[in-house]
Write a protein that binds this DNA or RNA. Structure first.
Lengths: 248, 248
DNA sequence: ACAGTATTTATCCAACGGGTTAATTTCTCC
DNA sequence: GGAGAAATTAACCCGTTGGATAAATACTGT
């Protein structure tokens, strides 16, 4: 596949059996490189903005290869999307929330979500793109629908345990809770470009990110447990009487 | 501009002065119709997916008109974006949060934000699109940057009053707070298509929307005031001991 | 070693899309 | 009532892009 030609031994023992190959077969590797390149391209430019030729070039391949190994632009896009969901849900399964103290489990879910979004900005872009298309492609996927009920049950169990132990004062709907947790990170990061412009401050520098994580954890845990002061990232207020002030 | 021809009086008193005009002049109206059509098109298809010809058709105009009255595709897009920010910030100024009890002010801001996003789905799409472009266009705008500091100050004042009155237990950063409030509504609505698919339930039916608003208000106000049980939309739990359960 | 198949390259093309040019029509003001 | 400006229409240009076709090259089993 690589355009650079190279030498190889045709068979051991043949003295002058070296040949210059124009390309090498590697269907699996090619497919992976195509999907990776497509992920980059679709997340960077959206569905309509993505260019099939750029994907091919980035994959070190020929445009024809995309159609050969995956399919047309839409099928390629759906494959990328399914892969993205698969990856995050699979990492989430490793969180092991069942064996944590409920408040700790929620905190861990928040931190994981935040860090996952930070580490995988293409995931955010892909979801944005797909939502702009009103999930037209995702609806065709059979795989994706099934991966989410275990995840919801995991959260439901944590909430129930928290209520039973007295840590949580309310038994919120796990879907609402997860949507809220995802929302707090997702919106901040996916909209950081416009937010940084309108509020005139860089929301992605280290300090801002640390503050955001503290704010989100504080908000959710304070709401669940009813202990605002303990949970919000705080600092002694210089002039407000008795209340605490969140950093900046 | 309308393709349908019609009759008109050339001048009063001329008996047979009726003429069939092929089109009528209306520069201001044309500009408005172009911007409205462009808003629809850009929000429905994104920047790259939007079609200049479709915008023209929807505006009852000719493609050439867009360039004549507004500019090229990018300038058209920026004009739409600026108009969108202008509209929401202008409506927010009418909220009059200064004269409300602090918890009531926050609740009102949450409800306004939620309802505004519900009433103006194109606003959400436009922001998503612009963020996918990393705010490339918005950065060129001088108008937009200035409209936001009064808004932040408005929230800052509410928070300060809430802390001083003892209603709020923490003085959160107003920017963080607003981002969180916007996030809870924005993500739910802008991602409702994919979320509905993966969680297998319609997040936009009436019941779901009511529950969402209750959840968001409860979450934020509980965190600020520390009174979870009072503020979350609740229902007596059938089997959990003493705790309250959010509907569904 | 070689026939048959899998994989990759090299071109081609028709449709599309943003933008431009030039001609046409309406309006305004004297 | 007519000249010049403003607004609008109609037709065209040309690079881009997704997709297709055909030929070339590498690998596999026998």
């Amino acid at each position: 596949m690589l355009h650079a030609s190279y030498s190889t031994q045709r068979a051991p023992g043949l003295a002058k059996a070296k040949r210059t190959l124009k390309w090498q077969r590697d269907p699996e590797g090619m497919r992976l490189r195509i999907l990776e390149a497509a992920k980059q391209e679709f997340s960077a430019h959206g569905l309509a903005g993505a260019r099939v030729d750029r994907i091919a070039a980035k994959a070190g391949a020929n445009k024809r290869m995309l159609y050969y190994h995956v399919g047309n632009k839409d099928e390629l896009y759906l494959a990328v999307l399914e892969g993205a969901y698969d990856k995050i849900r699979s990492e989430e399964r490793g969180l092991d929330l069942e064996h944590l103290d409920p408040p700790e489990a929620i905190r861990r879910l928040i931190e994981f979500t935040w860090n996952y979004f930070l580490r995988n900005p293409e995931f955010l872009s892909l979801l944005q793109t797909e939502n702009l298309a009103r999930a037209k492609h995702l609806k065709k996927s059979t795989k994706v629908k099934s991966m989410h009920s275990p995840f919801v049950e995991m959260i439901r169990t944590v909430v129930r345990r928290g209520v039973e132990s007295g840590d949580f004062q309310v038994a919120v709907d796990p879907v609402q809770l997860y949507i809220s947790i995802a929302a707090l990170s997702f919106f901040y990061l996916s909209n950081s470009a416009t937010l940084s412009v309108i509020f005139g401050r860089d929301l992605l520098d280290k300090k801002a990110k640390d503050e955001r994580l503290a704010h989100m954890s504080g908000l959710v845990l304070a709401a669940l447990t009813g202990r605002s002061a303990e949970l919000l990232e705080i600092v002694k207020a210089p002039k407000s009487r008795g209340a605490v002030v969140q950093t900046v």
